[in-house]
Design a protein around this nucleic acid. Sequence first.
RNA 1: GCGCCCGUAGCUCAGCAGGACAGAGCAACGGUUUCCUAAACCGUAGGUCGCAGGUUCGAAUCCUGCCGGGCGCGCCA
Length: 624
Amino acid sequence: MYHDSLIRILAARLADAIAQVTGKTPGEVDPVLRPAGDPKFGDYQCNAAMPLARPLRAKPRDIAQRIVEAARLDDLTEPPKVEGPGFINLRLRREFLADYLRSIRAPRDEPAPDRRGLVRTATPETVVIDYSSPNIAKQMHVGHLRSTIIGDVFARVLAFEGHEVIRQNHVGDWGTQFGMLIMHYAEHPIPAGEDHDQVLAAIENDYRRAQQRFQRDPAFATAARNAVGRLQSGDPEALHIWQTVRAASRRAFLDNYHRLNVLLTDDDVCGESFYNDRLAAVVAELREKLAPGAGAAHDGARVECREDEGAVCIFFYDENGEPRFRKPDGNELPMIVRKSDGAYLYATTDLAALRYRIKELGADRVIYVTDPRQKLHFEMLFAVARAVGWAAEHVRLEHVTFGSVLGNDKRPLKTREGENVKLRELLDEAERRAFELLDQRDRAAADEGRPTEPLSDAEKREIARRVGVAAVKYADLRNDRASDYVFNWDRMLAMQGNTAPYMMYAYARIRSIYRKAADRFGTPDVYAPGVTLRLDTPAERTLALRLARFGETLDAVASELAPHILCGYLYELAAEFMRFYEACPVLKAPDDDTRLSRMRLCDLTARTLRLGLNLLGIETIERM
RNA sequence: GCGCCCGUAGCUCAGCAGGACAGAGCAACGGUUUCCUAAACCGUAGGUCGCAGGUUCGAAUCCUGCCGGGCGCGCCA
């Protein structure tokens, strides 16, 4: 059994050797082990020798040679080669690779769901992830897409690694804007109906009308401001309207989440209103613990809470006593936690939320998935949480940002009318296009006289549904989350290259092989003890190596919170499977042993694709 | 003004804890179907890594400056 990732097994051996050469302990040295830049150099390369040349006063190639001589690698690799300026090139032995993969047991011998041989972390943490967070009384649009699906991948991956994940959907369900809506619905009926998204669209429309009236009708504006106060003091009519609007909004959100195949449920909703009755206490605590002079000094830096121009503010100073944040006029910039009129702000709510997450939910780590414009806000928020003592040193606070979705004009994606593209319209369009493509494909096959497995209309609709959603999500996740990306229908649903359908197709091909195998050979047990992996051809070996790297890939995805690394891996895996598929007949393999070996490689590939795609929140399909 | 982010092939993007000639997909051109789904596979062509310096045995990657684009900066969220 191998519980460690391939790269860690190799790195440990090399660290021992480098320690011998340098006279340090293995824990002190970095083997600088990387996947080989070019397959002709091997599978991995160790770049540790070059930087050692100066301190050891020796030629890098000589050092490399000494490392190679000290390293005990013969059970894992072919004899290492020292090449170029001092690279140590490593090529894994076929037997080791086969052995490593054989330690992945049959699904029936693993606890469900399939972990594909990967063990849970030895140091589980409680991780709160704040993501999606739409505002009520408005439909979800592309602006919510990234936070929702990126945050969802974090939730899935960290839970898979064995952490306790608590999802928090911090919906915007409180604020002055609801005064307008309350006044509007005092005079008009609140929309209702079966189609939750349509109901919410109608509410959003009413909201916009109310906003317009707010602008030009001073009496209405005053009434709306008063309505906020009525809502806060628990006036039954105001409360009823607010609750109805909130419930309608949440129903529509849940429909969207379900369709997007994200994990968020109604239980994960913990909106701004949840913190209302905690705000006063939070401000009181800040005033007490961060009173000027009370000085919870943190490595010289200082955070203090005091009144300024009638507002309760928090000021930040660095170790030299200089303000950490400044306004354009050069004066210091505080975080305001209570306005001069006594009202609280979203900064106050966020402070209450962070306190709740650490002190009551027991978070060791809090991850916020929002756009980068809020960077300054979170910098302040985290500084306060540290200074006031809510976040102990071991608690990690992270603001994870993502870029914008752009249209072809390189401006944030809008409809022709200049509105945000609604999530629902986006998914409808994706499904429609996927269905059309399926039809085209079948017609083309018929024209060329190629046989196809006939699909019923219901099957086609289901395939189009899953492919459409998968294509939208994958097209987003495959990009580095920090960078903006240009949204393009044709590219996304072209379904060639690095797209979800490509990987789903690879998966469907494997399932098809297994269906045919069952017809011809019964159901062979490819995980039986006698079945060995024969990695005789280059295509088989390449595929096997990729399969063996799944563990180290997931480690990287989790530690860098980078879904696109998983996308890249799955694309390489699918592409290498496609090459294997062309080069190595499975059902018509030359002999029984080879056939079973290849079928097992196929199943390992299918399991890896399915697990990997599921971690991205994408469902596989048996046929397409 | 201060701070942060971005600039890699015609297009869309990887690579950026420094490492061997800068990778992929799309588009272009050419090829593959008696064989497990051609939503596939193989091949050709295409780049002064925004510009200029610096550090280094070695820079797309680190540092500085400049050019171009975006974002943030007190009672909104």
